[in-house]
Design a protein around this nucleic acid. Structure first.
Lengths: 236, 236
DNA sequence: AAGTGGTCTAGACCACGCG
DNA sequence: GCGTGGTCTAGACCACTTG
C-alpha cells in the first residue's frame, strides 16, 4: 500500500515481534524515527498512536515509547478477525467441517436478530471447527444475498472473508460483539463433542460494511471448557 | 481540561446522545466544524477519529461522518471502566456489599496470577454486587500496597477508582482482560444467589499504570445467566 | 538545559461520491 | 467540478523527565 504511516506501523510491529529493540525495549525517539524513515513527525506519530491503541507500546511523556511485553499483550481475539486469520496467527492445528449451506428466506428468528422487516434472503452457513482433534466451536453464519450473491462449498471450507474482501470487494468495517452463556441446544449437542456439561458460550457478531449496512450475523457457539476471550483496553 | 480536541469530542458525544444531529444523523463536515469551533482541521480530525474508534460515528470518504445508531452501539462494557461508572451510566439499581478487606502477603496463587517473585503485600478486597435485588457478581480485587498505601471500608463501598485517581493520583492506563467459564467455587456459592447451576463466568483483569507497572489484579465472577459482555470492534 | 512526547496550526495534494 | 474525508508536511509552543 501507499500509506506511509501504515507501512511504518507494520514495520515496527514486525520489529517488536522479532525483538529488534534490545533488552530495555525502548523505541527510538520520534525525532530519530523522522530521520530513519525520512517522514514528518505527524506521520511517525500516526504510526505510534496506532501501536499504542492496539497494545503494542506504551508512550510516556518526557521518557519515550516502550514495547509492552509481547507474551502478555499480543493477539487479542477481541477484534474483527476471521477464524482462518486467527488460527494462522496462533499456529494451531484445526479443521473446518461444512455442515449446511443453503439460501433461505429471512425467518422470524433472523428478523429479531438482524432487526429487519423486509423479506430478504440470506445464506445460512453452518460449520464446525475442530481444534486439537476436538469439535469445539459451532459457527452459524448468515449473509445477506444482496451483498453476497454466490457462495460455494469450497469458499466456506477455506475463508469466506478472504473471498468477500478480495473477490466480491466488500468493505467490512465494524462489528458489535456480544458474549453470553446459555443452555446448549440439541444442535450444539449434535455437532459438538459434549461430555457431561450442557452449557454453551454464545458469541454473537453483528457485522457491518463501510456504508453502515448490516450484511452478516454470526453466532459462534463455544464449548465452555475451551472458551477463552482476551482483550486489551485503555482507560479513557 | 485545556485540550481542545477532547472538549470537542465530548461535546459531540453529548450532542449525539441528545439527538442534536437530525433525522439522517449526518455530522457537519470537517470544514464546517473548523468554523464552528474555530480550530484547525487537525484538531477536528483528532476528535472525529476518537469518535470513530469508540463506535460513535462512521466516516465515509467523499460523503461525510454519520452517527451510528445509539441503541446498537453505545455503552460497550468492554473498556477499562469501574463498576460505579458503569452503573451510573446504565441507570440501574445496585448495591455493593464489602465482605473482606485486609492487607495480606502475596501468596502462591497471586504470584502465579500477577507473575511476580518478590514478597510484596497486597490489599485483598472482596465485594458482592447486587443488581435488581439479586447478588450477581463477586468481585475479588488485589491492589499492591506500594501503590495503594491505605484503603478503608468507606472507599471500598463507594468507588476505589475515584479514590485512586483523584486522591492517590494514580494514572491508570491499560488492562488485559480475559473471560473464561469455570466450575463455581465454594466461595461463589457462599456469596452469590446460586440456584441449580454450578458454573461461573470469570472475568480476569490485569490493570497497569502509565509507567507499565501492574498494580491491580481483579477477578469478577458473574452468575452465567446474568452475564453479558458487549464490545465494539473495527476491522484493521 | 536538553530531550522527550502532547497539542495546535496552516497549507498542500490525493481519492472518493455525487450531480 | 465540487465537496467530502485521507494523507503528508513544516513549524510552533507546551508539559514532563532527567541530569
Amino acid at each position: 500500500m501507499n500509506v506511509k504511516y501504515l507501512n511504518i506501523y507494520n514495520e515496527i510491529i514486525s520489529k517488536i515481534e522479532n525483538d529488534k529493540f534490545g533488552t530495555n525495549a525502548k523505541l527510538p525517539s520520534e525525532n530519530q524515527m523522522i530521520e530513519e524513515y525520512n517522514v514528518s513527525r505527524d506521520t511517525i506519530r500516526k504510526a505510534l498512536n496506532l501501536l499504542e491503541q492496539n497494545g503494542y507500546i506504551q508512550k510516556i511523556q518526557g521518557k519515550g515509547s516502550f514495547v509492552l511485553d509481547i507474551n502478555k499483550f499480543n493477539f487479542p481475539v477481541s477484534g474483527l478477525t476471521s477464524f482462518k486469520e486467527l488460527t494462522q496467527k496462533m499456529n494451531v492445528e484445526c479443521r473446518t467441517f461444512l455442515k449446511e449451506l443453503e439460501k433461505i428466506p429471512v425467518d422470524h428468528f433472523l428478523k429479531m436478530q438482524m432487526d429487519l422487516l423486509d423479506d430478504d434472503e440470506v445464506w445460512k452457513v453452518i460449520r464446525v471447527r475442530e481444534i486439537g482433534g476436538k469439535k469445539i466451536i459451532l459457527d452459524k453464519d448468515y449473509f445477506f444475498t444482496k451483498y453476497v450473491p454466490s457462495l460455494t462449498k469450497e469458499i466456506c471450507e477455506d475463508s469466506i472473508y478472504q473471498y468477500l474482501e478480495n473477490q466480491v470487494g466488500l468493505k467490512i468495517s465494524f462489528a458489535k460483539k456480544e458474549i453470553t452463556v446459555q443452555q446448549a441446544s440439541d444442535e450444539d449437542k449434535k455437532y459438538l463433542d459434549f461430555e457431561n456439561c450442557n452449557i454453551i458460550v454464545v458469541v454473537k457478531n453483528y457485522i457491518y460494511l463501510e456504508d453502515m449496512n448490516l450484511f452478516q450475523y454470526t453466532e459462534s457457539r463455544h464449548m465452555p471448557d475451551k472458551f477463552k476471550f482476551e482483550s486489551f483496553a485503555r482507560r479513557k
